[in-house]
């Protein structure tokens, strides 16, 4: 399968992830959507690395995976903290930034 196929796959995954981020009410649900988006990015990177015979793309992917994992951990930690304080994980209720 050509590069285009993999890129299309990644694009579709990204769109699904975006949909999840936008529509989900639960904070953890939003984080899951972000996971999907990041996954799509990784697929993109690896596909380009393979088709351009450049290993740097894969190095990039290694880094993004690691950093994403750290970010998810922290995001969930914050969610737990907010839950403790506000007794809710519904994102609609977290509107302190409202101007």
């Amino acid at each position: 399968m050509g590069l285009g196929a993999y890129l299309t796959l990644a694009a579709a995954l990204f769109a699904i992830g975006l949909f999840g981020v936008i529509t989900r009410r639960n904070t953890i649900g939003i984080l899951l959507g972000i996971e999907l988006m990041l996954n799509a990015v990784n697929i993109n990177l690896v596909a380009f690395a393979r088709f351009n015979a450049d290993v740097v793309g894969m190095i990039f992917t290694v880094f993004t995976i690691c950093i994403t994992v750290a970010e998810v951990a922290l995001g969930l930690a914050i969610t737990i903290l907010i839950f403790r304080i506000r007794r809710t994980v519904v994102a609609d209720h977290l509107d302190l930034l409202k101007g």
């Binding site: 975006l18 981020v21 936008i22 529509t23 989900r24 939003i30 994102a91 609609d92 977290l94 509107d95 302190l96 930034l97 409202k98 101007g99």
Partner: peptide, 17 residues
């Protein structure tokens, strides 16, 4: 225009998208 700032992060994602 204030009303754009709903405080909901997802709405900001809208904007980015």
């Amino acid at each position: 225009l204030r009303r754009i700032q709903t405080g909901q992060p997802q709405d900001y994602v809208y904007g980015v998208a």
